[in-house]
Design a protein around this nucleic acid. Structure first.
Lengths: 219, 219
DNA sequence: TCGTGTTCGTGATACCTTCTAACCAACTTG
DNA sequence: CAAGTTGGTTAGAAGGTATCACGAACACGA
C-alpha cells in the first residue's frame, strides 16, 4: 500500500494519484473484468492525458500486479480479523463467500484464469501463505466427533512429507489435508457460481456451498 | 462442426478454411490463452490479409464462441465414449483430469473466468446438460457401503425440489447431490492446479485430486 | 458458351489499445 | 537564485478489431 502520510509533499501527492488510479481501475475491473482494463480510459476519467499514467505505473501489467497484491492483502486481512474474533472454519467459509460475492471480478483476479505470461511476485505468494496459515490455525486439533480414529491416509502421509507450504506451521498432516480441502472445495463451488455455471439449473448455490463447508467442519 | 463433405464445392472450401482458422486459433489459445487470440495473426499465418477472416467469422467473439462450443462438444464426447465403455465415476474423474491437462487453456475457456459481456448460446448449455446427464448415469443407485442409511439431507431435499437442470433425468436427489459434488470438488482441485496455485507448495496435486475423487466414489 | 450474380480477397480507413520519445513547466533542493 | 528532479503534454510507432469499396474468381441459368 502506498504510504499516504509520507515525508515530502511530493511523495504524498504521488501516493494520492496512485491511489486514485487504482480506485478507477477497480471500478473498471468490477464492471467488465480485468481484461477490459484500459489505462487510457483511466487517464481520461482522472483528467490526465494518456501517457501521464506511465509516471505512476511502468506498465499495465505492473498496475494489475499491484491490484492483485492489494486484493490478496484484503482477503488475508479480513481472514485474520475474523480469526482474531474467534471464527472457526465454518465462519471463515462464510467470510470467504461474502468476500467473493462483494466483488466477483476481484475474486477472479486472484483465483481465475491466469494471465499466461504473468509471474506472481514473492510478495503475493507470501500473502497467500499467510491465508493458508490462518486456515491452519483454525483447524481443530481433534477430528470431528463421529470420525473413527483411523491411520493417516496415503494422501495425509504424503502431505506430511511434502509440506513446503506449511514449513513454518506445526499443523499435523490431518490439518494440512483439511486446510487444502477447505480451499479446493469452497473454491470449486464458489468459482462455478461466480462464473454463472449454476444459473438456470434451478437450485440455490448458497445451499450447496454451506453443505460443502459442513463436510469440512464436520457437520 | 462444419460439414466437410457438403454439397457444393464452394461450401466445402468454406468449411475447410473455417477449420483451418480454428486450428490456428487453438494453437494460439494453447500457447497464450484466449485473451491473446488475434485474428490478424491468424490471417497472417494462413496467408490471407486481415479483413478476409471476417468473411468466415463475423467477429472475434463469434470465433471464440464457436471454439467454446467445440470444446464443450469435445468434453461431452470423451465423457460419453468413456461411459459407453463402462466407466464409473472414478474413471470419469480421471478422464476429466486427462482432458484438462491435455490443453489447460481449453479447460479455462470453458470453466475459467467468464468474459463479462459473454452470453452462452443455447447450444452450449445443452451440451453442458449432456455432460451432467452422463455423470448422473454414472452415479450408482445405492450409496457406497459403509454409509449409514440416512434421511435425505436438507440440501438433497432442496435439490429434489429444484432440479430444472435434470428435468429429463430420473436420478434421485442423492445422485443429483453426488453429480454436483463431483463437478465442484474436482473443478476446485483442477482449476487451482492448472492456474499454478499449487506450484511451490511441495505436494503432488494428482494425489489431492484422486483423494477428492475417492470422497465421491466412496473409496 | 456466354452473361450474370454471388462470393472471396484486397487495400484503405477509422478508431481503439499500450507504450516510447521529445519537450516544457513546475516544483524541490543545494 | 541556479540546478536538477519530477510531472505533464503532444506526437508517433506498432498492433488490435472492424467497416467499406472495389476487383477478381467462381457458379450457374439461358
Amino acid at each position: 500500500m502506498s504510504n499516504p502520510d509520507a515525508a515530502t509533499p511530493r511523495e504524498r501527492y504521488r501516493a494520492q494519484v496512485r491511489e486514485e488510479i487504482k480506485k478507477h481501475a477497480w471500478e473498471q475491473i468490477a464492471a467488465a473484468g480485468a481484461s477490459a482494463l484500459s489505462l487510457n480510459a483511466i487517464a481520461k476519467q482522472i483528467g490526465m492525458s494518456g501517457p501521464a499514467l506511465y509516471r505512476y505505473f511502468a506498465s499495465r501489467d505492473e498496475l494489475i500486479t499491484e491490484l492483485i497484491t492489494d486484493a490478496y492483502r484484503s482477503l488475508a486481512d479480513t481472514f485474520r480479523a475474523r480469526a482474531a474474533a474467534g471464527a472457526d472454519l465454518g465462519d471463515l467459509a462464510h467470510t470467504l463467500r461474502a468476500w467473493a460475492l462483494d466483488d466477483p471480478q476481484r475474486y477472479f483476479l486472484l483465483y481465475g484464469t491466469p494471465v499466461p505470461g504473468y509471474r506472481a511476485p514473492e510478495d503475493t505468494t507470501r500473502t497467500a501463505a499467510q491465508i493458508m496459515a490462518v486456515l491452519l490455525d483454525a483447524c481443530p486439533d481433534e477430528e470431528p466427533p463421529g470420525t473413527p480414529p483411523s491411520p493417516p491416509s496415503p494422501l495425509q502421509s504424503h502431505l506430511g512429507r511434502h509440506r513446503a507450504w506449511a514449513e513454518q506451521h506445526p499443523a499435523p498432516p490431518a490439518a494440512l489435508h483439511r486446510a487444502l480441502t477447505f480451499w479446493t472445495r469452497l473454491h470449486g463451488v464458489l468459482s462455478l457460481e461466480l462464473a454463472g455455471h449454476f444459473t438456470g439449473m434451478g437450485f440455490d448455490p448458497a445451499r450447496l456451498y454451506t453443505a460443502e463447508a459442513q463436510t469440512i467442519t464436520g457437520q
